[in-house]
Design a protein around this nucleic acid. Structure first.
Lengths: 179, 179
DNA sequence: GTGTACTTACCTATCGTTAAGTAAGGAGGC
DNA sequence: GCCTCCTTACTTAACGATAGGTAAGTACAC
């Protein structure tokens, strides 16, 4: 039954914690092993490499965002507010790991992160303003999208429902939509 | 008289370029030296340490932002639009290096970057909405401030005046100001 | 006794950094 | 004009630390 073995889960938890605290690049396998009271090679029993460990943490989140976007793109018509709501919820849920992803774009370049994040923004803009947005529309979208992201990171300890309403109203205002 | 020696300047240029391309942490002194056709220890003739080199690139920009904020805080009354304009101009001017600073917050944690950036946002919010902003005001400010930043990074090749107007209008809309 | 979940011990590469040496060139005395 | 002295701007060589990674062995469960 314990396919995802207990130790593997504990490794992931500790790694996540240390990555968020001190950054991915600055966290050694030794430090992770020490914190768990096991040895470094033990990590290699559960993960084939350091990159594999990092990817195991980041990848599911990337996949989730990818799936969210695909779902929105499959709709006949997007409701901007609903789109932003989904985007906010996703980011709020993963705000801890998002700090890591966004503040270490270059470190995580191996995962194609930079292109990925840029691609998402482009697709979100397209969903909001069609395939060929004007500069005005593109900047509005960038502000709304980036703003939502920033809010989840900057106000990480504000109760979700309060923050959600405030952040979404702000994003809609940036887009020029009435709340 | 040429205190800032030519070689020192060339080192700074190449380092900046590589840092932006592949990140600070992922750029070794060896790579910088190779690109210049000199040896690694030659770098130590011009800089006392790797950190000194990094700081020489980043510090002037941080000081400039600090000075900008101090100037705004010294005013009797801030005009929001003017504040945002100054903030945009600063970020546009340094957009290349800003990628580096913002996407490597944890790597550059030694320079106190994270606290610094957070402190700036707090002070900007205070300038826009007074010493005790509501959550609504704080999120609006976060969206406007982060949005301007994002625009300079994301639309780095758009002509400055066009981008400036579009981005500032968007930021003002987020704040609920008429353009 | 076979597979699982490790440990001990070690390898190798790379990094920042330092020590020591050297070629080129200008300054100043004679 | 030439020699000496010092500085500038490097090079060659090597050091110590740390990182990711591996080979081989071990304790325990079934």
């Amino acid at each position: 039954m314990p396919r995802p073995s207990a130790t593997r889960q504990r490794i992931l938890e500790v790694a996540r914690e240390l990555f968020v605290q001190q950054g991915v690049q600055r966290t050694s396998l030794q430090a992770i092993a020490d914190r768990l009271g096991i040895t470094k090679p033990a990590l290699y029993y559960h993960f084939s490499s350091r990159e594999d460990l990092v990817r195991s943490i980041v990848q599911p989140i990337l996949d989730e965002e990818e799936a969210f976007l695909a779902r929105q793109e499959a709709l006949d018509e997007v409701a901007p507010r609903a789109l932003l709501e989904g985007y906010f919820d996703f980011h709020y849920r993963h705000r801890k790991e998002m700090v890591l992803i966004l503040s270490e774009l270059t470190t995580l370049a191996d995962l194609g992160l930079i292109d990925r994040v840029m691609d998402w923004r482009g697709r979100l803009t397209k969903l909001l303003h069609g395939p060929e947005p004007t500069l005005e529309q593109a900047t509005r979208a960038a502000i709304a999208i980036g703003g939502l992201q920033d809010c989840t990171l900057q106000f990480a300890d504000v109760p979700e429902d309060e923050l959600r309403r405030a952040a979404l109203d702000g994003a809609c205002a940036a887009l020029g939509l009435e709340p």
